[in-house]
């Protein structure tokens, strides 16, 4: 079982990775083995899932935001380009 033993630092790294669905099976096994002895990391994982929900909200907002340049900015850009071309 020694090869499954990991530190809290490693365990939480795997936990972070798994929040994006990118932890490997072996990593997940190591993580769950770590939980048997470490309730702190278990708590971290629980809170991490909540953090992911908050990040998701933020991501949703960000994706629906319509990032466009204002007409004013565009007119400025056009003027500057024309000056350069002249």
């Amino acid at each position: 079982m020694a090869k499954f033993k990991i530190s809290c630092d490693e365990a939480t790294t795997i936990c972070d990775k798994s929040q994006y669905g990118e932890a490997t099976l072996l990593e997940k096994i190591k993580l769950n083995y770590h939980f048997l002895f470490c309730k702190i990391c278990l708590k971290y994982t629980d809170q991490n899932t909540k953090m992911s929900q908050i990040f998701k909200m933020k991501a949703f907002d960000c994706n629906k935001a319509n990032d466009c340049l204002s007409t004013e900015d565009k007119e400025d850009l056009k003027k500057q380009l024309q000056e350069l071309e002249a």
Binding site: T12, T13, D16, K17, Y20, Y44, N48, M51
Partner: peptide, 12 residues
């Protein structure tokens, strides 16, 4: 992943 891990633990 190291960067993400450090960022996330700090954000937490």
């Amino acid at each position: 992943w190291v960067i993400i891990h450090r960022a996330r633990t700090q954000l937490r």
